[in-house]
Amino acid sequence: MPITLTQIFLFSFLLFALTRVILRLKSGELSLFGFIFWSGIFGLAMVVVLFPGITSNVAKILGIGRGADVIVYISVSLLFYLVFRLYIFIEDIRHDITELIQKLALRDINENKKSKSKQK
């Protein structure tokens, strides 16, 4: 069965996503559990892209009549990835704000001490 342009595009995108997962594991930002989860998701998606017949079989088992709608699938996978990235980004910002607030709180006590010792 010849490979279509869509398959090449989707496969490349998933391969890119998989490399991001590996890089994140290497940099220590992703736990082993996270690595297994995400590489499993993207790996499975790659198999489905290469052998689209699998989806029809799954659709039959689940009782879904329609086959793969390529545009919807691409959009959903892209959105899923982007929402995940965005969520992490927001979490990081929240984390940074907390760190700032914490530093300010700890600085307060140092300054109080300094002003007290000056008074003495």
């Binding site: 704000i97 907390t98 607030i101 914490q102 709180a105 006590i109």
Partner: peptide, 17 residues
């Protein structure tokens, strides 16, 4: 002794401090 968070950060934030 009191340390003050100028914004509410949640239980985790306070425990971190």
């Amino acid at each position: 002794k009191v340390l003050r968070h100028i914004l509410n950060r949640g239980l985790g934030g306070a425990l971190k401090t």
